[in-house]
Write a protein that binds this DNA or RNA. Structure first.
Lengths: 345, 345
DNA sequence: GCGGGCGATGAAAGCGATTACATCATAATT
DNA sequence: AATTATGATGTAATCGCTTTCATCGCCCGC
């Protein structure tokens, strides 16, 4: 068995209480005693048992993070933001991912009990009932990117709707009329909001245009399939708005394979602004979500909630998005003629 | 305070021991008692305190993961692999990152004591002394991608040397003679090995050629700078081998900006095969490191070590790399002529 | 010289679980 | 019917630490 505080006490010929006091910063111990204890601890290679410590002080210095998945840049960025704040507050991260399964979310939440001081939960597909059932009511919790927590939890949500509207406005502004969308998974909260933004903006800006939505699931593969279908249509759209960047990229490859040039023949836009978006060619016009920042804000919020311990306000904070114009969406040829009759470029 | 096992015991009118037995699977409790206890637990919304449980059973079902950073795809992939195995074994992940600082590594390691059953440490820059000093000797530990652990720890390393040799061989085989390298950080273990592979393979395959190495630090930015310098040379190399993909991509942009065509004017290769490598244009020829697989293997190894508890063999396992040929490295024009005098497409 | 205050230390009671061991009723054995 | 085996339950120790409270010198002022 590893060396415990008792061993140190014995070695230093003092009581465990004194060892505890001596090691945990300056309480009231003589300088000499402290040196004695420190020496003994060092000699034995004593490392405090944080688990026991947590149990005793009822504080773990850990926060739990429950994510739907770990695949891809989105989560990488999110975790990075979370980590940044965690380290600033001396918190450790207990990571769990649910793979989209409600039962796994439940298991993860329960497993966190007694291990963490607070919880960051992102699960765009579970309702608050699951949370209520598997979370102690006193556990400080911040929901990331799902509004379903109702008034029981604080939440941080992306302005998916506004971002989608902005993109449609941008495309329409460039003269595109037939704007198709590749949607995300039906059950996904973000996907639904983005779709709603698309539909509403389209109805408002181009009253005549009929929305055209292809189903996708946020994967590159599904974007590719959608791209094939769009390319094979007798009359393809002017512009394609994919509900996330990975699908946009899949779509891009499909279009290229079909001999369609982006942005020459067709405009293409995504959502998220994952790092890859800058690197594909043409670079992707997209809606930037400051993912790392979302992680930061979420944890800041949680730290606050932990501090307030119960007297928590349950705010919902919306994260603004930002249109990032790159070269995958050129103005529509017709619009070009209309706007610049002299034919620049 | 949250509801504890005592509350359940009181509610079910049995002892805490019985509650414990009833809830933790079928020990020896009457069916009726069990139902009673279950009902009480459900009614109170009891969720066991895993921290206390861990202390008692001396098992946390957690493994600690100490990484140098969380930025980028490499770690994302690594964590994904780790997670896959963790979930298969019912383990949770305690994540910590050291930002390259030895003191932070030390702090992270100490903070893990009593919280985890084993440790996965990746820190290409700290030596084994830091580990020895801040780790209880009994803590099962697997080092990822640093060989410095000596015989005290098990380790998993990438075959950086072999991969670099293979790439040089590939480039030389395509007729390139003046092959430059953009190196990684000097202190980094991987970077040194890749450089060694480059030097040795070059010496062996092209005895006349003088190695040309530019300093980089694995960042896209540093690759960009190196690319500018290479492009501005009076006589630029035939081929550039970057020590990782991000630098290769930075370099690619610099070359394009300078009016050099890849692969027309110059061949470009990377190392790692991060997902982006497929998406840039031209797609990047690179050395694939199965990063997720490395995470998986590392944790598998750790799980084994935890099981064996002390009687651990301290193996060093090398992870093979794999040449991935894409279109960023065309045959050298001279070689083309030499090999295919008829001038095939 | 003596009681009070004070500051350092130790003893012991938690924190919330598990589990060895004791207990006690009931079933089985002779 | 007496005794033992059996099996469910309770009691209490334990995990490694913190912290309250009691104790015990020691110094001070009167």
């Amino acid at each position: 068995m590893a060396v415990t505080i008792k061993d140190v006490a014995k070695a230093a010929q003092v009581s465990v209480a004194t060892v505890s006091r001596a090691l945990s910063g300056s309480d009231k111990v003589t300088g000499e005693t402290r040196r004695h204890v420190d020496a003994a601890a060092a000699r034995l290679g004593y490392i405090p048992h944080e688990g026991a410590r947590s149990l005793s002080i009822r504080r773990t210095q850990c926060v739990g993070v429950v994510l739907p998945d770990l695949h891809g840049e989105f989560f990488s960025e999110l975790i990075r933001g979370i980590d940044r704040v965690a380290r600033a507050h001396g918190l450790h991260l207990l990571l769990s991912c649910s793979h989209g399964d409600a039962a796994e979310v439940a298991a993860a939440l329960r497993a966190m009990r007694g291990r963490v001081d607070g919880l960051l939960v992102m699960s765009p597909h579970v309702d608050s009932k699951v949370l209520a059932k598997n979370l102690q009511p006193t556990m400080p919790t911040v929901l990331v990117n799902c509004r379903d927590g109702g008034d029981r939890y604080s939440a941080l949500v992306i302005d998916n709707y506004g971002g989608a509207c902005a993109m449609v406005r941008h495309l329409a502004g460039r003269g595109h009329r037939r704007i198709a969308m590749i949607g995300g998974p039906e059950a996904n909260f973000d996907a639904r909001e983005r779709l709603a933004g698309y539909n509403d903006a389209l109805a408002e800006l181009l009253p005549g245009a009929r929305p055209q939505v292809l189903r996708g699931d946020f994967s590159e593969e599904s974007g590719y399939r959608a791209g094939r279908r769009l390319a094979s249509m007798s009359e393809h759209p002017d512009a394609i708005f994919a509900a996330n960047d990975m699908m946009a990229i899949g779509c891009l490859f499909a279009l290229n394979e079909s001999g369609l040039d982006v942005p020459g023949d067709i405009a293409l836009a995504g959502f998220d602004d994952i790092p890859i978006a800058r690197y594909v060619s043409p670079p992707l016009t997209t809606v930037r979500v400051r993912i790392a920042e979302m992680g930061e804000l979420a944890l800041e919020r949680l730290v606050l909630a932990i501090g307030e311990a119960g007297k928590d306000k349950h705010s919902i904070q919306t994260l603004r998005t930002e249109l990032v114009v790159r070269s995958s969406c050129a103005p529509h040829p017709a619009a070009l003629v209309a706007l610049r009759p002299k034919g620049a470029g």
